[in-house]
Simulated scan of single mutants.
Amino acid sequence: MKNERSRPNAPLAARIVLWMTLLFLYLPIAVMILGAVFVRENEQIHATLKWFVEVLNDEALMGALRNSFVVGLCASVLSTVIGTAGALGLRHNKRAWTWAVEGLSVVSLIFPEIVFALSLLSWFFILKMELGLTTVVLAHVSFSVSYVMMTVSSRLATLDASFEDAARDLGANEWQIQKTVVLPLLAPAILGGFILSFLLSFDDFLITYFVNGVGQDTLPVKLYTAMKLGVSPKLNALSSMMFLMTLSALIFFFRSSAFRVLFEENRGKNGSSAEEKNL
């Protein structure tokens, strides 16, 4: 085995570009949070949580928050079920047309979001469906399924087939193999797909703006309409709460077994294969 050469330090210019990029990305978020916590009264600046309390006491905003949670949970559950079933189906049906299904499953990843939103709106109009939370859930499922399928498929590609062969040798049928062997091994990937689809649904604005009904706004849409009257500390507090909720879900995902299975295990495999080549 060859000794790995130490990686040289990045040049100073590259580090400056990196820190400048991070500054431009995260400085607006820091300003938003500071604008929600610190207020200026009587030419004095002091910290307060008043605006967060006002957001929690605002019935319209809390109603929009409930809509976002309902839509996010429904869409993520449906996307997880459909995406997992689709990934398993593609794995067990290696036919000539499966490549077309795999290609169509990632359409939402490459289509411009505005085109996707307009096509969904036209489809709901053709079906004569009344716009509301139901159409929002269906729209979110349509683009979240692709992410779940990709997440579960990447885990399926790393599964050791010997577990299924051992179950067959013990007399298990295909349904028992899927239920007692494959699905437990896929649990971290399924959880990761669920969290990812929930975050995508909870934070989505453009597609929701096109397909939601009157008086059934989700939190991002409500935030957009409120910002037309100008940015206020209350809106900063609302945006900060959305950011903290999303950040909490991401931290949970990164600390869960789903992240370790999807990324660390694959990285370990790539590392071991590289070592084998160097032998």
Rank of each mutant, 00 (worst) to 15 (best):
S76D: 01
E59F: 12
A60F: 14
L61T: 13
H92V: 14
F52L: 09
L88T: 01
N93K: 10
S68R: 00
L78M: 13
R91P: 01
A87W: 06
C74F: 14
L73W: 05
V81T: 05
V77M: 04
S76W: 10
G89N: 06
F69K: 00
K94N: 13
L88I: 11
A87V: 07
S76Y: 07
L90D: 00
T84R: 02
A85P: 03
I82P: 01
L78I: 15
A60P: 06
V81L: 08
V55S: 00
R66W: 15
L73M: 11
G83R: 02
N67M: 02
G86L: 12
S79I: 02
V71N: 12
F69T: 14
G83C: 04
I82E: 04
A60T: 15
V71I: 13
S76Q: 08
V53I: 11
N57A: 12
A64H: 05
G83N: 04
S79K: 08
V71D: 11
D58S: 09
G63Y: 03
V53N: 03
R91C: 04
L88K: 04
R66V: 10
E59H: 10
C74V: 14
N93Q: 08
C74E: 12
A60S: 15
L73N: 00
R91L: 08
W51K: 13
F69A: 14
A85M: 14
G83H: 00
F69W: 11
G83S: 01
N57Y: 11
G89A: 10
R66L: 15
G83M: 02
G86C: 15
R66Q: 12
N57F: 10
V77H: 05
L73E: 01
S79L: 01
R91S: 09
L56T: 10
A64W: 03
I82T: 05
C74M: 15
S79P: 14
N93V: 07
L78R: 09
S76P: 08
M62Y: 10
L88D: 07
V70D: 15
G63V: 07
V77P: 06
R66E: 08
S76G: 07
A87E: 08
L73A: 10
F52D: 05
E59W: 12
